[in-house]
Design a binder for these strands. Structure first.
Lengths: 343, 343
DNA sequence: TTGTATGCGTTATCAT
DNA sequence: ATGATAACGCATACAA
C-alpha cells in the first residue's frame, strides 16, 4: 500500500518543477522542450504514475462523468437504454454512474442529490416523481439534464420523448387492419404519462373505428421485477378471457406483460395467434425468441440511450445551449403473434 | 449559472470560520455549540448548499465509489449481477460506475485505468483478458478487487466463483436420470474457463455413465449481443439434428442459446419436450416466460452481485483484509422443457 | 522554455 | 468551543 505518486514526486525525480511535469502529463499544449518531455514521460512510466483525477477535476471544476437514473437495470428496456448511453459516453471520454431508482421517489431524489455532490456534468433520467424540486436544483447547479422515457415538463430540461400515444394508436390500427374488432388493452396501473399515452392512443383508434374500447388495468402498484410484469399479464388475460365478450386480440402495454398474456392463453388451451392474437409494446430482444415471435411496437431503446448521451455531451461542450426536444416515432414490428382475420 | 456556494461562503454569512462550518456540515463529532450549529444549518439550507465531494474526497483520499466491469449490461445475466451490486452499494453509501467491456481486452484495460484514476475504492470485474498486468496494478494501488463469473487466479484478488463444472455435471446427470442417453452439448466457443468448466462437467457425467459425449461448438468468436447467442443456438441445433444419430436431449451453455435451440427445433416441426428435450444454463428470468418454461441450471446472478459488493464493502472497511474465495453452487431449476423417458 | 505561487473545496492540525 | 492555516493533487496566471 504505497502512497501514490504525484506530479511533485516526479518533479523531484526529474529535477524540474511540478508545473512542467503537469504540463507534460496532462498533454497541455503549453510548450515544453522535447528533452524534458521525454524524460518526464519516461520517469512517469517507470514509477507507474497514475493521475489523480480528483485533483484535476477539483481544479478545473469539471468532471468527465455523467449519471443515469432509471427505474431498474434489470428491465431489458432500460438496460438497452443504459447500454446506448454508456457506449457514446465511453467514446466521448465520460464515465457513467448507474442508478436504479426502483420507482421510489425518495430514492430518485437521493440519487439526484448524490449526482450533484459528485459533480457530474449531466444526468439522463427517467423520472417518476411528481415533485420536481430536486430536479430543478440540479438544473440551477448548472448540471445538464435530459429526460427520457417519462415526460418531464420543466424549464431547462431537454427531452427525448417517445410518442406513446401514436404507438398505442398504431397498434390498435394494426390489429383493426388485420380484421379484429374486439381488441382488449391490458395495462399496468395507469399512473404514468407514458402508460396513459399508449392507452389514449388505443382509445383514439377504437373510437375512430367505431369500436368499443376494452381496457383492463392492473391497479395494484407495480414493482421493478420483470416477473411481476409477467404475472400481471397472466392475471389480466385471465380477466379478459373471462369477460362476457372476450377479445380476439389483446394488446399489452409492454412485452413482458405480453409474455404473461401468451402464457395464460396457452394454459387455457388457446393458441396464439390462431385463437387469440397478442401484441406487445417496447420491442425488447427476447420478443423474437419466444413462440410465437411477438408482434409489437418498437420503442427504440438503445438508440434512445445513444441519442440522449449524444445530446448531453453536446450540451456540456457548447457554451450556448440550444434546447430542443426530440420525439421518437413508434414503428410496428410485424412478427407472428397476430392473426389476419381478413379473407 | 451561479457559482456554487462553499463552506467559506456560509462562514462569511454566519460570521464564523469555515472550520466550524465544515465541522457542522460534515457531521463531525467535533464539539460545536448548539447555537452555532443550528444557525449554520439554517443558512446552509437557505442558500441551498451542496457539498462538493471532490474536495472532500481529495482531502480524505477516499471516494465512496466503486466500479463494475462486465462484458455487457444488455445480457440479462450481467444486468442481474449489476442490479445486485448496486443494491448493496446504495445501502452502504457507495455509488457505482458501470463499465461494459464488450469482451474487448483493450477496453477492459482502459476501464481499469479509468477506475484507478477516478480513485474508486473497489472494482468488481468479470475479466476476459489473458494479460492481467493492468489488474495487478490496480491491486498495487490498493484498490480492492473482486472477480466474479470468470476465474482469476491472481494474488490479492478475492473471487466469487461459480462451480461451472459441477453445473455441467448436474445437468447431464439430470438428463440421464430422465432416461436420456443421447445427450448433446451445444456451446459457444470454448475459449473461456467458465465454458470449458461446464463442458468438462458434462463430459465427466457422460463418461461416468458410459455414454458418448456429443459436443457441438460454435467456433466463431462471440459478440455481446443476446440475439447472437440466440442465432448461435439455432445453428447448433441445426447441426446436431442433422447428425447421424441426433440427440434426444440438447443441453445449452446458456439460456439464450437454449432459446435458439428451441426455436430451431420448432421450426423443424419438433416438439419440446415430447420430441426433443432442451436444458439451459444460467436461469435468467425470461426462461420461465417462454414455452415450454425452460429447465435450466441456476447460476445465482443477483445474489452473486450482492455478495460481491458486500465483500467489497467489508474489505474497504477492515484494515486487516481477510482474503477468501466463495464458490457458489449450481442448482437444477426443474421446469418443463425436459421429457421423462422412464416408465 | 521553465519555475513560482496560488487556488479549487474540503478537512485536519494546531492554537487560542 | 472556535479560529487560523495548511494540505490533499492538480493546473494555471504570472514571473523569470
Amino acid at each position: 500500500m504505497s502512497k501514490s505518486v504525484t506530479v511533485h514526486d516526479i518533479a523531484k525525480l526529474a529535477n524540474v518543477s511540478s508545473a512542467t511535469v503537469s504540463r507534460v502529463l496532462s498533454n497541455s499544449d503549453y510548450p515544453v522542450s522535447e528533452k524534458l518531455r521525454t524524460r518526464i514521460l519516461q520517469i512517469a512510466e517507470e514509477v507507474n504514475y497514475v493521475p489523480n483525477l480528483l485533483g484535476k477535476q477539483l481544479k478545473k471544476n469539471s468532471t468527465m462523468t455523467i449519471g443515469i437514473i432509471i427505474p431498474s437495470i434489470i428491465n431489458p428496456f432500460y438496460s438497452a437504454v443504459a447500454f446506448g448511453v454508456e457506449e457514446v459516453a465511453r467514446q466521448e471520454g465520460f464515465t457513467v454512474f448507474t442508478c436504479n431508482s426502483l420507482q421510489d421517489p425518495e430514492l430518485e431524489d437521493e440519487y439526484i442529490q448524490t449526482m450533484m455532490e459528485k459533480q457530474v456534468k449531466g444526468v439522463i433520467i427517467s423520472s417518476i416523481t411528481t415533485n420536481k424540486e430536486k430536479l430543478k436544483r440540479l438544473i440551477k447547479m448548472n448540471v445538464n439534464v435530459i429526460a427520457i422515457d417519462q415526460k418531464l415538463d420543466e424549464e431547462g430540461i431537454s427531452q427525448i420523448e417517445f410518442d406513446h400515444r401514436k404507438g398505442g394508436f398504431l397498434a390498435a390500427k394494426y390489429l383493426q387492419g388485420k380484421g379484429h374488432t374486439r381488441i382488449g388493452y391490458a395495462t399496468t396501473k395507469l399512473n404514468r404519462p407514458s402508460r396513459k399515452g399508449i392507452c389514449l392512443g388505443y382509445v383514439d383508434a377504437m373510437n375512430e373505428a367505431g369500436l368499443e374500447p376494452f381496457v383492463e388495468e392492473y391497479r395494484s402498484d407495480e414493482t421493478v421485477n420483470p416477473i411481476f410484469e409477467f404475472e400481471t399479464g397472466r392475471e389480466l388475460a385471465r380477466r379478459m378471457m373471462d369477460a362476457e365478450r372476450p377479445p380476439t386480440a389483446i394488446f399489452a402495454c409492454n412485452d413482458l406483460l405480453a409474455f404473461g398474456v401468451i402464457h395464460e392463453l396457452r394454459a387455457r388451451g388457446l393458441q396464439v395467434p390462431s385463437d387469440v392474437s397478442v401484441m406487445g409494446f417496447d420491442g425488447i430482444d427476447v420478443g423474437q425468441m419466444i413462440h410465437p415471435p411477438l408482434t409489437t411496437v418498437k420503442q427504440p431503446d438503445y438508440e434512445m440511450g445513444k441519442m440522449a448521451c449524444r445530446m448531453l455531451v453536446d450540451m456540456t461542450r457548447g457554451e450556448d445551449k440550444p434546447m430542443f426536444n426530440v420525439t421518437l416515432q413508434p414503428k410496428v414490428l410485424e412478427r407472428q403473434s397476430v392473426r389476419d382475420l381478413n379473407g
